[in-house]
Every structure is written in C-alpha cells, then in structure tokens.
Design a protein around this nucleic acid. Sequence first.
DNA 1: CAAAAAAATTAAGCTGGTTTAAGAAAAAGT
DNA 2: ACTTTTTCTTAAACCAGCTTAATTTTTTTG
Lengths: 190, 190
Amino acid sequence: MHPNFIKHINKYIELDDNTIEVLNKYIKPITYKKKEFLLKEGQICRSIYFVVKGCLRMFFINDKRTEQITQFALENWWISDFFSFMDNKPSEYFIQTVEKSEILSIDALSLEAMLKELPQMERYLRIIMQRAVAASQLRIKYVHQLSKEEFYIHFCTSFPEFVQRVPQYMIASYLGLTPEYVSELRKKNL
Amino acid sequence: MHPNFIKHINKYIELDDNTIEVLNKYIKPITYKKKEFLLKEGQICRSIYFVVKGCLRMFFINDKRTEQITQFALENWWISDFFSFMDNKPSEYFIQTVEKSEILSIDALSLEAMLKELPQMERYLRIIMQRAVAASQLRIKYVHQLSKEEFYIHFCTSFPEFVQRVPQYMIASYLGLTPEYVSELRKKNL
DNA sequence: CAAAAAAATTAAGCTGGTTTAAGAAAAAGT
DNA sequence: ACTTTTTCTTAAACCAGCTTAATTTTTTTG
C-alpha cells in the first residue's frame, strides 16, 4: 500500500495495521502515462481516484468545441465526477493525466464493501468531502470577488507549483480565461 | 424533534428511536424572523445549520460595498461557512434569513460529541457532503458553459420555487448579474 | 539533429454585460 | 390609508476581456 495514502488517511483518523491490510483489498493502484484518460465523456464514472504521484485534470468540451477544465488534482487529492459516480449517470467530463501519474482507484461497489467492513473510513471520507465543500465555497468567493486579472495573479501566487507543472493554456482554461489574455497579463505583470 | 429532519436523515441511513432521542440532545432548534442574522462577517461560524422551514442566504460584502450572495438554503438544506467552522477562523460571510425560518443548529463541539455517540451519523454527513461536492461541480460547469443570459434562464427553469420566494435582485446577485441586466433579460424573455 | 506538433505571443477590432442615474412600482411599517 | 422603504425598470455610455488571425517559440518525436 502506498505510504503517502496511509499518511493522508492518518491525518484525519487513527489507522491500525489490520485496517491498512483490509483497505489494501479494496484499492487498486494503476500507473498512467502522460495524457492517458481515466474517464471519457459518455462513460459512467465508476471510481473515485486518489493521486499518489502526478497530476490529473478534469474537463468538458463546451459549445465552442474547446476544452474547459474544471478541476486539477495533484498529489494527495481525490478526484471524480461525483454525480456520475453516485447516480450511475453518463459523465459529461473527461479525466486525463497531465503527466505520468500513480493513481489509486476505488469503484463504487468496492467503496461500499470497504465502508461496511471499515466504518471508521466514513469519518475520513466525511472530513475529505467537508474540506472539498469548503474549498469550493472559497473558489466561488474568488470568482465573484476578483477581476479576471486579479484571479489569475491570485492563483499563480497561491499555487506556484501549478504554474511550474501545468501548461499555461490549461491554467487559463481552469480560470475561465483565453490563452491570449493570459499572455497579455503575463507581459503586463512580470 | 422535527419530522422533516428525521425523514431527511432516514433517506440516507437507518434510524431507530433511540438514535433519534440521542440526536435530540445535541441539536438546537431556533426560530428566526425575516432578515435576522445567523452569522456576521468577523464572527467565527460556530454551527452548521439545517433549514426545516424557510430560506437562508449566505453573502459577503465585495470591494464595491455591495452584497454578493454565494448560496441559498431552502427546506432540507444544510448551510455553513465550512472553513470558518472547521478551522475556527473569522468568517468573511453573513448568513441571514430571507424569510421567517425554523432552523436546527449544531455547534462544533456538539457535532463531535454526537458523532462519537452516533458514529453512524458520519455516514449521513459523508453522503450529504458528497452531494454538496457534486452540486458544486455542476455549478462550476454551468458557470463556464452558459452565457449569463442562459445561466439566468436555466436557473429560473430549474428552480422556479426560488423565483417565487426570493427577490429578483437576490437571484441576480447569486448568479453574478446586475439587477439592471436581469430586468433587461426579463423584458426580452417573457 | 531535423521536422512536426504543441504552446505561447502579438495586435486590432468587437461585444456581452456593467455602470450610472433617474424614475416607477410594489411592499412594509405605523 | 398614508408614508417610508424596498424592489424593479429604463436607457445611454462605457470597458474588461474575447475573437480572429498571423507569427514565433518551445517541446516532442523519429
């Protein structure tokens, strides 16, 4: 089992050796190359994914036929299309690696079985989800509070690791900007 | 204890009479008049709130000194500033009733004690939080996918109950539009 | 290393939605 | 019923950020 994953869970709940062993039964590690898809539009999102190493992006294709990124996931982040995952509905999203990545995945049935055997994991997931809600409250606030220029600068200073690892046009897409406008902002702000 | 609340929990987990009685110990019902505040900017958000009857809004004051609404909560919704609640940090939000409302509140200490005594409630909250994450994924998608006009029309057709109950300028604020523009849209689309 | 593909830049013109300001209509309080 | 407050409307001027299109730079691949 991946030590980073254990460490992450252990930040929120107590974990004994037996629990770790049981967890191991349900969780499936996969290594992906750069630009591989974990989910494509039209498929049902059968799993939730934990990033051990690497980077994922989630996006959809908008009416103008361009990719609109809605989320990134770096190390120790969970990602999924939760609507598709919970209700078994075809997803409108793609989930793809931005770079070579080591992923842990757990599908809906395994998750239910795991939670039945290890109910203390409900608490871990509850806290993770609660933090995700808090994060999206913050994100919505920034969207309304900041101009696009301020939003871009705020993102770059808050998450410098992204600027290093992720192409500029993907950051533009995530922030709802055109690559051309980001280019202009960079010229102005450097 | 409020039957709507019990019914809501019962949608996600099994509830026996004893559990309900224990729950009752930790949960505090309060009735608010129209326009009363449950939280003000600068205060720590000490509780999470469940709307039994009525309507709440959450907003912050932006740089132009106008109220920016980020969330509503109608019957059977939970609302809180989760960052403030989890980390005991002063909130930047206000939470206020839009109309006379019956609210159940549970503060952080009571929540922890309740979850210790009723660990099965972790599952309920995990599912609630997971659904909230799914909802915010959908919201972000709409923000990127739809023009402001489409966004307004989509909201009005998806949540007609809001249009009935909530003043138009509040819906405008929630959607990130000026009241003037909404007025124009209404003229155009009726 | 050369060729191709992917990513970033530049600049001019344009538009969806805001701002500003004034007035009208509806709702709430006394 | 009357006064005050809140909410909604109208219209013109304005601008942040987008579109389009061509070029350059960087990265990837054989």
